[in-house]
């Protein structure tokens, strides 16, 4: 049983009503994460994006969450205040169904890191209309054992090849190693 722990949750609060659709968040996010820092910008690489449809008055800033290997089946529509939103409009995943939150050239997934090391995320700093605000809240969470790096890697391999195949490979590799030693 996991034990309860106090933890600081860092997050960006999005007030979509205040969004002016300018995409400054995309500009500065992609500039911050460029290497070297700020040497270039490219909204297609941004870890935040504004889902905007001005004529329908749809403005939803979304920042990138987890990578997902497969898309949802049967996507829904939401109607809020008479405006129809695609379910994906609110989704933070880097997902095969769309180009968002992926490096445009390699397709590798992107995830928001709340600009680790800065006082506040750059998108928040550059959002002068206050659609984005930074929040640190203390939460009581059930701390799960966080999986180790190797476990994450193995799980990805298992998803792709199946656990049996991995075990077979490991067995073969260890046989080979023994052979070398001998």
């Amino acid at each position: 049983m996991a034990e309860k722990k106090k933890k600081i949750v860092k997050t960006i609060k999005v007030d979509a009503d205040k969004c002016n659709g300018c995409r400054a968040c995309e500009v500065i996010c992609s500039a911050f994460h460029a290497a070297p820092k700020y040497s270039s910008n490219n909204p297609a690489r941004s870890r935040i994006k504004v889902n905007r449809h001005p004529l329908k008055d749809i403005y939803v800033p979304v920042f990138a969450g987890e990578y997902t290997s497969s898309e949802c089946a049967g996507r829904d529509k939401y109607v809020i205040d008479g405006k129809e939103y695609d379910e994906c409009a609110f989704c933070r995943a880097s997902c095969p169904s769309r180009d968002d939150f992926k490096e445009p050239d390699s397709g590798l997934p992107l995830k928001c890191d709340v600009c680790e090391g800065e006082d506040e995320p750059m998108c928040v700093k550059w959002c002068l209309v206050d659609a984005l605000t930074y929040e640190e809240r203390e939460e009581e969470v059930e701390e799960e054992e966080s999986p180790e790096e190797m476990e994450i890697g193995l799980e990805a391999l298992a998803n792709e090849y199946g656990l049996d195949k991995i075990m077979e490979t490991v067995a073969r590799m260890s046989m080979a190693k023994k052979g070398e030693a001998a």
Binding site: N20, G21, C22, L55, D57, Y59, C127
Partner: peptide, 27 residues
């Protein structure tokens, strides 16, 4: 007027989406 809006990378909100009765929205 539905919303005050901006051009790319600008906080100034000089524009607006306008929906006249019985007509489509424009800016």
């Amino acid at each position: 007027r539905t919303r005050l809006i901006s051009c790319y990378n600008c906080p100034m909100t000089c524009g607006a989406t306008i929906t006249p009765p019985g007509k489509p929205t424009y800016m």
